[in-house]
Design a protein around this nucleic acid. Sequence first.
RNA 1: CGGGCUGUGGCGCAGCUUGGUAGCGCGCUCCGUUCGGGUCGGAGAGGUCCCCAGUUCAAAUCUGGGCAGCCCGACCA
Length: 568
Amino acid sequence: MTRLTRYLLPTEKEAPADAEATSHKLMVRAGLIRQLGAGLWTWLPAGLRAHRNAERIIREEMDAIGTLELLMPVLQPADLWQRSGRYVIDELFKLRDRREAPLVLAMTHEEAITSHIARIVRSYRDLPLMLYHIQTKERDEPRPRAGVLRTREFTMKDAYSFDRDREGLDAAYDLQASAYDKIFDRSGLEWYRVESDVGAMGGFGAHEYMAPCAAGENEVALSDAGYAANVEIASATPQDVQGLPAALDAPDAVETPDARTVEQVCAALEVPSGALIKAMPVIVDPDGDGEPLLVVIRGDHRLNETKLSNAVGGPARAATEEEIRDVFGAPPGFIGPVGAGVPVLADEALRGLCGLVAGANEPDRHLRGVEPGRDFDPRWVDVRNVEAGDTCAAGATIRLEPAIEVANIFKLGTRYSEPLGATYLDESGNAQLIWMGSYGIGPARIVAAAVEQFADQQGISWPRSLAPFDVELVTLGKEGEEARTVADGIYEDLRRAGMDVLYDDRDLNPGQKFADAELLGCPLRLTVGRKSIEAGEIEAQIRRGQEKRALPLEGAAEAAQELWRALP
RNA sequence: CGGGCUGUGGCGCAGCUUGGUAGCGCGCUCCGUUCGGGUCGGAGAGGUCCCCAGUUCAAAUCUGGGCAGCCCGACCA
């Protein structure tokens, strides 16, 4: 029985004052979620139905490729995390039990599952294996935000694959990726699978599934040729510099008093920013030996720190002003690659250009007519951020869009099997490390992304697969009137046909009911009122686009179901 | 962790500068009205003014300390 008079759906006319993101506002207004604390959210009945729908799709596709479901605890011994080296993570909640034994609240389950597999799997005959669970994760986020988009406690489907070798891992990874593709197709979202950085965790490859929307925390580079990558690692051919000065036979020093920034130098020398060589003094391996390095990129480009750290094989940070003077031997703002006393790393976008402007490594001076390769000999790397308008390898124009990361897949290799001792015996009786992959999806983010992507002025507009209910049936009749009796009958017919129906049988004005229905956003709304009954029909409104159609009163449930099947 | 903002019935807000009976809209309860786009009228209920301490005859208001929440950035294994 899902009659609104007996249901908990606390809708609000106004969004919480502090809500910013569309999904945050609408999910609270529609009565789907309520906040308990920073980054701590309760899923109310209707919201939970949407969440369960996302879970169900995920579960079905995991089961379909033979990933086995299990369930692991959230509360875990700290020892496991000390062994994997992740006990030091700030986001990890740490606590003690009554005997002062250290425990953690799991932020993910690599340690737990690897520990089990280490004890259970003995032989190559036990592999390959894929396991998953849908379980709570706890993360002490420095900044929870945007409703359920970034929370401290959330449900995650995390799957893990176990194989004998790299080839096995590759196969498992491809299989998981194919399942993920199906999951997101079924979810009704607009989505992209993008290459992603393997990050500090190391690894052998990773992809993220991104759902474009305004509240997204990531940025993806997309092209019509099918290119899709996280901007952290995206590569592209840069746009040409317009108005590049003519080449010179040799660099020519010019006075540029107090011109330290790109803008100031451009103004002083009347050149476009793309004609500048922006020099960024960095310290590589700052926690170790601290190697100074001069990174140069085109003046109109931005340095990509992820790419830089990948290029230099470790962390790097910007040099301080003192370091620039002492180690690089030049005044800040006038540093340049020509005659630099440290190794130079140059972005590919500078290759082949001439007539450029660079710092002269002495106060108030720049060099004109600089030509990379001729005037300095760098190591060439790709360390810039792609920009909208660049060209991808297939020749199409790149655009940048904010997106929510709804899932990620990751080739872990032996990152966890090694510290946790997960090995098997091969045919020769030799112990070998198990090769692992991990595959995560956030159902709450799928739900929130759907809200973000399809909301309109009136409220949410669910894809069919995620909607809390298939149909909202609105009766405009009061207790005892014919419209009420007719609606009761249609409600039963729809339920018998297997539809999930929310029946608004409240004694409210039509406007209030319609407003609530559109806010909640079920794909189809059926309205039964005196007028429509007299005309021998009921009204169907398709939520996406709000198109209205008349259905015959006779066989209304069947007609509604047929209409519903054709919806997105 | 840096910067900014906010805590007053369920929600959105005013009151605070200049200390003295806590107010408005929505929602809620009851009565009537209306019934295909948040109808109208009447009567009501509901608040430790985030917490603690201080100043004062008197604190939502002034002072100090704490806590909580939000936004931007950093971070996000």
